[in-house]
Nucleic acid binder design. Structure first.
Lengths: 313, 313
DNA sequence: GCAAAAGTGTTTGCCTTACACCCATGA
DNA sequence: TCATGGGTGTAAGGCAAACACTTTTGC
């Protein structure tokens, strides 16, 4: 087996003929799409303290920018922008996030490519979406570039009875035929004053794939409600391998904080003793403790490196 | 909440001003990349029968095309090609697969976007990769378009001791530092006469993401060894939610066939009684049975629709 | 008859669930 | 002191791994 000589040339020897071919290659003659990256940036925020003792409620929040330009001027959109020559799509995502919001140095989780023709009224534009985790306390939002404003929105994402009002969708699966594979979800984003929403239809397709259709959308630009829904579903699925929860806490954290990350992403309460047992193999205790709360101090933990990866069977 | 009026226009009212803006939007002035779709098409093939009784060994196989053009002429590549205006990236993947190999009507599972600058010597080309499942018996391979040939290759993908020869990598995790997050894998593809290989380094990154680096590659075009490795890892991970195994069997199948799908994808033997119990809730027995084998006939099953989805906790 | 695979039953032990209970703190 | 969250223990039940065993066929 021969060593690769350049980054993308492995074991090939036909030098001269190939070089000639490449110089003649008319890449220009095909029409090409614009390629964008859009980023669903997630953080976990505390609500207001009710009293000195009671822990504040936590919210799942995401970062949106207000569009200062047509199309969708005045609507809120995911930060994102166009891929430039010489950068990877991940580098593009990081650059656009920094330029449009000031949020920097996040880690990215690839989501999916959104490429429906007509998804962008400006023309032929496809988007590769990413999820990123950020500490909202670490950054001052500094909207620049195309963005007129940048804000964190609290997320609510719940199943609704098909065609009806909010509620649990337990009996949606009782319907026959294709309907069994469909669930509607109401996405509500609020920053205290402003509330924007979308109603999405989830369709479970072959090969385990989930597709979304926007039924209604109010104040959310482009097909970004769809991207947000896909991001939430992916987070809920991926958090179970116990790798990504740590992205939402500081280096030192209490187990209660980590548990809140899980609860807020899954939108479900967990039992503390069981949560601690399950994560015990992924964390190690430090000597430090939290103080100042009206109750027993909590040990601070850090992530245990090289912990066994959960391979679900 | 207002109804969306067109496919991608939700609750906006600024008609005339926006239309003017769109007509003036100079999408032409930015340089754009070529966008491709590449497809990792997987099937499960039987080996030769040893005797009338013994069931043939099964192999995980994937579909490659021989490049008739530079660059990488004579190397083997994933079927794929460039996105055309008016189609989604999924439609592009299906069209290219059909044009280059004759394989049609598969289901697609999105994989990832590969966009490293320099990944393609022809220029600025990014690729959105997909996994698809096909029955190799159903199609006659008819290489057309750019492909000089199209063939199924049996896959072997095993961990190797870092820097050494083949073997199990159990003690790779004993190494300190970053090395703990790295594993090498040897990918071997063979069609009986021809064998092509690549050595890949798997790196476990933050946010649970896995990245691959091509250490050596022999006979595999572009960065396609990386795409194949990512596809195998995704398959091994996703098969546990018990949705995708069915893509690799016919409508009626024996539980042994289904078990072989799991075994061949996971590269691991499973115990029959346990496998049957686990999958029992996803299948329903029919009245039909297989005959002609030198042993007890096997019941034929079909997939049970509306089966509970496995939500791993 | 016999080899091979289809299919069932059972034991064991671990992991999850649920809940009861004690600990430590600051206003 | 007491409300509140931090933290531990434990019993019950379910699931999964491992293995033993029976069934049914074609040659």
């Amino acid at each position: 087996m021969s060593e690769g000589k350049g980054p993308e040339r492995y074991g090939r020897t036909e030098g001269r003929e190939e070089e000639y071919f490449l110089s003649e290659y008319e890449q220009e003659k095909y029409e090409r799409p614009s390629v964008a990256a859009d980023i669903v940036t997630i953080t976990i925020r505390k609500g207001k303290s009710v009293n000195f003792r009671r822990a504040p409620k936590r919210y799942l929040s995401l970062l949106l920018v207000k569009r200062g330009q047509h199309p969708f001027r005045g609507c809120w959109a995911l930060p994102g922008g166009f891929l430039r020559k010489g950068e990877s799509i991940e580098e593009c995502a990081l650059r656009e996030l920094r330029e449009e919001t000031g949020v920097d140095r996040v880690t990215l989780l690839p989501l999916e490519c959104f490429s429906d023709p007509g998804r962008d009224p400006r023309g032929w534009i496809i988007s590769n979406a990413f999820i990123s985790a950020a500490s909202h306390e670490q950054y001052q939002l500094t909207p620049k570039a195309d963005a007129a404003d940048a804000k964190w929105f609290d997320v609510r994402y719940r199943s609704v009875r098909k065609g009806g009002e909010a509620g649990d969708a337990e009996d949606a699966t009782l319907l026959s035929g294709d309907a069994a594979a469909e669930t509607d979800h109401l996405l509500t984003l609020t920053d205290g004053e402003l509330t924007i929403r979308a109603l999405l239809r989830e369709r479970r397709c072959k090969f385990g794939k989930i597709e979304f259709e926007i039924v209604e959308s109010e104040g959310i630009a482009f097909d970004h409600a769809k991207i947000i829904a896909a991001a939430i579903h992916k987070l809920r699925k991926e958090i179970h391998d116990n790798e990504i929860g740590f992205e939402f806490v500081q280096e030192l954290f209490t187990l209660a904080e980590l548990q809140q990350v899980y609860e807020v992403i899954l939108d479900e309460a967990l039992l503390m003793p069981n949560f601690r047992r399950k994560l015990s193999e992924y964390v190690e205790a430090t000597e430090e403790v939290t103080t100042g709360a009206g109750h027993r101090p909590a040990k601070l933990f850090r992530r245990k490196e090289g912990a066994p990866r959960r391979e679900e069977h």
